[in-house]
Design a protein around this nucleic acid. Structure first.
Lengths: 207, 207
DNA sequence: TGTCAAGATGAATGCTCATTCACGGTGAGC
DNA sequence: GCTCACCGTGAATGAGCATTCATCTTGACA
C-alpha cells in the first residue's frame, strides 16, 4: 500500500531531477551538495534519498537525460533524411543546441542552457566514471551510426561526395556538434543560424 | 638569503605542477586532494603550500598551461600560412591533439593525453570560475582571430571561398578542434590523419 | 665551517558534506 | 473514519579534505 500514487511519486522524482539539473548547471556536479538539491526542490535534506540511493544516482539520471534530449532530435532528423547533404546533417546537429528549450519525455520544458552546461560537466565526469563513460559511448555511437548511414544514402543520391568515408564524415559532423555546443555555453556563440550560411558557403560545391 | 636558488625553486614548482597534472588527468580537479598531489610529487602534505597559496592556484596554473600548449602550435601554423585552404587550417588544429607529447616552455615533455583530459576538465571549470572563464575566452579569441585572419589571406589568394564569412569560418574550425579533442579523450578517436583525407574529400572542390 | 633565513614535515584543526535514522505526519484502501 | 506502510523531516554521524603551524632540516653565503 504505497502512501502516494505512482504518478505522484514519479512527479516528485522529476521535481528532484529538475532541481538537481538547475543546481548542477549552476555549480557543477561536485560543487553542488545534496542539501543544495533538496533546498532547490523545496524539500528536506533527507527527502531525495527516498527517490535516489545516492548523489551518484542523481548524476546518472541527469547525464542519461542529457544525452537523450540532445541526441534524439539529431537521430530523428538524420534517420528521416532521404537525400541529405553534409550541410543538412550538420544543421540537424545544430537543431537541439540552437533553441531555448526542449521537451522531455514527460512533456516538461527543459532549458537548453541548463542542458548544455550539464553536457559539458558530463564530459568531465565520463573521464573517470566507467558507467557514464559506457552510456556516453553508446549514445555517441548511435548518433554516429545514424549520421554515417545518412551519408551513405546521400552518396547513393549523389548529394554527398563519393570520396568521403562515411564513418570519418560522421565523426566530423559529431565534432561540430560538440564543438558548437561548447561554444554556445562557454565561448559566446549565439547565432547558430549564421553558421548555417557559412557551412553552405564552404560546402556549397561539394555537398 | 634564499635557501635554494631560483632555478631550484622553479624546478620544484614545475615538479608539483607535473604531479598535479597527472593527478588531475586521472581523477579530475575535485576528486584530487592536495595530499594526493603532494604524494604524487613525492613531498609532504604541506610542501605544495610553499609554492602555491591554494589548490585553486594550482588549478589556475594547469589550465593556463593547457591553453598555451594546445593553442600556441595552432596559432603558429595559422599565422605562418600564406595561402591556406580551409582544410589546411583544420589540419593545423589537429596538429597538437594528434601526437603523443608536446614540449612545454621549460623544455619538458608533456603527455598529450594528460593535457587533453585536463582541457576537458577545464571546460567544466570555466562554467563557474570567472577567472578561468576569462582566460579561456582570451585564448579562444586569440586563436579564432588568427584563423579568421588566415581565412582572409586565403580569400585574397583564392584558396578559400569568397562567400565564407571569416569569423563564422573560424568558429567552425575551432568547433572541429574542440570536437576532435573531445573525441580523442572520450570517444575513441585514434586516427586523426584519416580525418584529414575525409576533410579534403568534402572540401576538395571548394576550399 | 658556522649561521640563519627559508624550506620541508606531518600531525592537528576546523570545516563541509553525504548519508542515516528516530520521530512525527498522511493518504490509499478498506 | 481507521489503519498502517510509507513519506517527509532535520538533527546527528562520521569521513574526508584544505589549510595551518610548531618543529626540524638544510643549503647559500660569509
Amino acid at each position: 500500500m504505497p502512501r502516494i500514487s505512482p504518478e505522484r511519486r514519479e512527479a516528485k522524482r522529476a521535481e528532484i531531477v529538475t532541481a538537481a539539473r538547475r543546481c548542477f548547471a549552476r555549480d557543477g556536479f561536485h560543487q553542488t551538495s545534496m542539501p543544495d538539491i533538496a533546498a532547490e526542490a523545496g524539500v528536506s535534506a533527507g527527502a531525495p534519498y527516498r527517490y535516489f540511493a545516492s548523489k551518484e544516482e542523481i548524476i546518472l539520471a541527469i547525464t542519461g537525460d542529457t544525452f537523450r534530449l540532445i541526441f534524439d532530435p539529431v537521430r530523428r532528423l538524420a534517420d528521416g533524411a532521404d537525400a541529405p547533404t553534409v550541410a543538412d546533417l550538420v544543421l540537424a546537429c545544430l537543431e537541439p543546441i540552437g533553441g531555448q528549450s526542449v521537451t522531455d519525455a514527460a512533456g516538461h520544458d527543459v532549458s537548453v542552457d541548463e542542458l548544455l552546461r550539464c553536457a559539458v560537466q558530463t564530459w568531465s565526469e565520463l573521464l573517470r566514471n566507467d558507467d557514464i563513460h559506457a552510456r556516453a559511448n553508446e549514445g555517441f555511437d548511435g548518433v554516429r551510426a545514424s549520421i554515417a548511414h545518412a551519408l551513405r544514402r546521400g552518396q547513393q543520391a549523389d548529394t554527398v561526395p563519393a570520396g568521403l568515408d562515411p564513418d570519418q564524415g560522421a565523426r566530423t559532423v559529431m565534432g561540430l556538434l560538440h564543438g558548437f555546443l561548447l561554444q554556445r555555453v562557454a565561448f559566446g556563440l549565439t547565432d547558430t543560424s549564421g553558421l548555417a550560411a557559412s557551412l553552405r558557403a564552404v560546402l556549397g560545391a561539394a555537398g
